[in-house]
Simulated scan of single mutants.
Amino acid sequence: MADTNSNVAIAMVAGESSGDLLASRLLSGLRPHLPDARMYGIGGPKMAEYGFVSDWPMEKLSVNGLFEVLAHYRELKGIQNSLRDRLLAQKPNVFIGVDAPDFNFGLEEQLRRGGIPTVHFIGPSIWAWRGGRIKKIARAASHMLVIFPFEAEIYRKAGIPVTYVGHPLAQVIPMVPDVAAARSALCLPSDGRVVAIMPGSRMGELKHNTIAFVQAARILAQRDPGMRFIAPMAGQKQRAFFSELITQAGLQDLPIQILDGQSHTAMAAADAVLVASGTASLEVALYKKPMVIAYKMMRASWEIMRHMSYQPWIGLPNILAREFLVPELLQHNATPQALADALWKQLDDPAHQAMLRQRFTDMHHTLLRDTASESAQAVLQVIEQHKRTAGFSPARA
């Protein structure tokens, strides 16, 4: 095992709230083996619970869309270069990039050339688009940790060391959610229908998705005046922006209960969820809830990205199922009326709801592994292998 003393250092980068959650599961497995290790880099509050110190605000990396990234390129490159120089000087025992592939793979490639072993946790969706990235991954990652069972063979064929660790969220989320407890925690009535509105955790996602999502909620409220709406926000910055957007659009009269965090409680409490594509859609599936997946982005980014896809689905539940289990409404198709109609069908079809519960339960079992332990063991093995091949030199503080 790696030395369990204060000289061991693990550097990590997670770029958004979903990465923060996923990384925290890895840290929960590492901490018992490395109780005094220094863990630092870029991360969020859930990682901080395990003693992780973030040297930059994680939100700086939470940019999506091709042109949106270009607008922030200078700042992102500056952060990447500063972190690279610091890590090359300090020589941590391992660097772990958590998702954020466009930021992390470039950093990992430079660190690996500098003699630092690199682990990448959460493989990018090369099976969905931009498959050519596997060549860059081969240069960047000493070891891949993947969360979907079909991914491991892709990396093995490319000669990249890989471990399938299951999906961390499959451990965190209960197989049978406690709806009554969740509603009680959010002061929601035990009866009546509840819809969760989840336009995304990134500021760009909120900018493009919020108005259509909330307008769809208004249409649903007109059909069912007793329906309740909840909107979990990833942080105070997101909450303020969400509130500002709906006020500017004149939608503040719709009673939406805005939550600070508590996204899992919101999913458990909901009868259905309107969710932006991404990790959150898989979380909704693990909570066995009907959903409509929607996504809007800058038009120029959309025109480029839609021609680069290898498959007809973008939502993780549909990708794993290899069929449209739940509706996907994207870009110009994500109109308030279309979103409301699709959600209404999800709410008004008990047979469909029962089918989804079974399919999502099967999916949950497939993804369920002891992710914290298995991912931690893989990281420890990378550290040990590096010690054997390069000689051990304690990381400098």
Score class of each variant (00 low, 15 high):
Pro161Thr: 00
Ile211Asp: 11
Ala212His: 04
Ala212Phe: 03
Val179Trp: 06
Arg218Ser: 05
Gly166Gln: 06
Gly235Val: 00
Val172Ala: 15
Val146Ala: 06
Ala212Thr: 00
Asp191Thr: 10
Val194Phe: 03
His208Glu: 15
Arg193Asp: 01
Ile230Asn: 10
Cys187Thr: 13
Gln215Glu: 10
Gly159Gln: 02
Ala221Arg: 15
Thr210Met: 14
Val179Lys: 15
Asp224Ser: 11
His208Arg: 05
Ser190Met: 14
Met233Val: 01
Val214Gln: 09
Ile211Gly: 00
Glu205Lys: 11
Ala216Gly: 07
Ala181Glu: 13
Arg218Val: 04
Glu153Gln: 13
Glu205Pro: 11
Val214Ala: 09
Arg156Lys: 10
Ala170Ser: 14
Pro199Ile: 10
Ala196Leu: 04
Gln222Lys: 12
Pro232Arg: 13
Arg156Ala: 08
Met175Tyr: 00
Val162Gln: 06
Pro149Ser: 03
Gly200Trp: 15
Pro189Ala: 04
Ala158Leu: 07
Phe213Gln: 05
Gln215Asp: 02
Gly166Ile: 08
Ala217Phe: 05
Gly192Val: 00
Glu205Asp: 14
Gly166Asp: 04
Ala182Glu: 02
Val162His: 03
Val165Asn: 07
Thr163Glu: 04
Ala234Trp: 10
Leu145Asn: 05
Ala170His: 13
Ala180Trp: 08
Ile173Glu: 09
Gly226Tyr: 03
Met198Gly: 11
Leu145Lys: 02
Phe148Asn: 12
Arg228Tyr: 04
Gly166Thr: 07
Gly200Leu: 12
Asp224Phe: 00
Ile154Leu: 13
Leu206Ile: 09
Ala181Leu: 13
Ala152Met: 02
Asp191Cys: 08
Leu145Cys: 02
Ala217Thr: 00
Ile173Thr: 14
Val162Trp: 04
Phe148Ser: 12
Ile230Arg: 12
Gly200Asp: 14
Phe229Trp: 00
Asp191Val: 00
Ile173Cys: 11
Gly235Thr: 06
Ile173Lys: 08
Ile147Trp: 05
Leu145Trp: 02
Asp224Gly: 04
Ala182His: 09
Leu186Asn: 04
Tyr155Asn: 05
Tyr164Met: 04
Gln222Gly: 02
Arg183Asp: 06
Val195Arg: 05
Val165Glu: 03
Ser190Phe: 03
Arg218His: 01
Phe213Asp: 06
Val195Trp: 05
Ile147Tyr: 11
Leu145Met: 01
